[in-house]
Design a protein around this nucleic acid. Structure first.
Ligand SMILES: [Mn+2]
Ligand SMILES: [Mn+2]
Ligand SMILES: [Mn+2]
Ligand SMILES: [Mn+2]
Lengths: 225, 225
DNA sequence: TTTGATTTTTAGGTTAATCTAAAAATATTT
DNA sequence: AAATATTTTTAGATTAACCTAAAAATCAAA
């Protein structure tokens, strides 16, 4: 049974929604993620259900089957490995790689993924800090906290983002807050939920709530949250 | 105006046929190259003509326009660069890369081709010895001769193949006649047009006409043909 | 618990890319 | 130059992947 690119993309969207929400993915949510309409999604859900890649109950949302999950995970693995290739080997910036990876993830080839993985040195995270599942679909977990949860005095290193838009990634570059950048939380401003931080090189920055809600760090401080 | 993968593939097929035959590509020839039917090709030719990528005269065959030629050349460039990547960087054999390159050639991305080209060190030939056009669509020419044209005493190094099938490439590997392999023509057998050659490492081989008609070499000898 | 809002599905298109079978044009033989 | 063979196009379908508009189901509030 052959699977199309559109089908793969829908499976990936369903996986990500179900992962974040931890419940069946709803038609509208999938349509929003795919930039299509609810009617188109319903169409696709029938096809995916016919192929036993999802469990679909009308009006009740969908869940991936074992096979559906396997395909979605493999697709995410490929997407993120190609993103590593594009940044590490071809020198693209982290805000430039998504659209290309979106195409590269569909390239089929015996051993292609495993050889790419080997070539890249078996990376565990992609350029945005997202984990890369291994060949068996196992995920690497690690502790990270939204900047909103840090307390004054806490120090941390940037490990990931929630907003993957080029605009946000470029703004982080401007601020010198790429992956690995260290900072200390100096002060919280309850009025607008902005924060003041100090970077490793001594600069002080004020970050808006929009930034703090989209930035993950691993806490390095001696204090506990 | 957006161009589809199917359209790109047809343009490439037309380019290759016109190049080899040096006259307009005929419907049946395109259908054979694309593994489709003449009816499907006629359909596609109308669409390509509408987009001004080919000049199409019913029953008379087609020619690429300037723009059509540009697209076909760029596609071949991408295909061959990806083949170099797959062999040089990922370690695939020359008989394994074609199908993957067939998909990779369609991946779109600002600067993707140029960065790949730089990463690979601006290769001039692909793993099958075929030339890679540069960013401006210029081709590298070099003198090479079919093994059928060598005379006893001539020596040469393998520079390319006409038959790109995995079966032929694997057979050449078995014989130790990959790209760059040197050999000397010892004897021609008029009866079945086979030849006897000696390889660099002293082995003597008899090569069938089917092999000699598909193997290109650059002549190293002091004799002239 | 009926009503109104929201979500989802159905009904009925469209377009690209393919197909088979039949008709038309062109080429090759007698 | 007919007759025949070959090539190409047209006619008519099919499938995947979308769409809009309308109907149906579910959810939220009064
Ligand atoms: Mn991405
Ligand atoms: Mn990513
Ligand atoms: Mn190839
Ligand atoms: Mn090649």
């Amino acid at each position: 049974m052959t699977i199309t690119q559109a089908e793969e993309n829908h499976l990936k969207a369903i996986f990500k929604i179900a992962e974040k929400e931890d419940k069946p993915a709803l038609t509208n949510a999938i349509a929003a993620a795919m930039h299509t309409t609810a009617a188109s999604v319903t169409d696709m859900l029938k096809r995916l259900a016919d192929k036993n890649l999802i469990v679909y109950e009308k009006y009740r949302g969908v869940q991936l089957t074992g096979e559906g999950n396997r395909i979605a995970t493999a697709l995410i693995r490929k997407h993120r490995l190609w993103e590593v290739f594009l940044t590490e080997k071809l020198g693209f910036a982290w805000d430039e790689v998504h659209d290309m990876a979106e195409q590269l993830e569909h390239v089929q080839g015996e051993h292609l993924v495993s050889r790419l993985d080997t070539f890249l040195g078996h990376p565990k995270f992609d350029p945005h800090g997202d984990p890369i599942p291994d060949a068996e679909g196992r995920w690497t977990y690690r502790k990270q906290s939204l900047l909103t949860t840090l307390l004054p005095g806490d120090r941390g290193a940037v490990t990931g983002v929630d907003d993957h838009s080029a605009a946000f990634l470029q703004y982080l570059d401007q601020l010198g807050l790429g992956l690995g950048a260290e900072l200390e939380l100096l002060e919280r401003f309850p009025y607008d939920h902005s924060v003041r931080v100090r970077t490793r090189d001594g600069r002080e920055l004020v970050l808006s709530e929009k930034v703090t809600k989209n930035l993950y760090l691993n806490i390095l401080s001696d204090r506990e949250s």
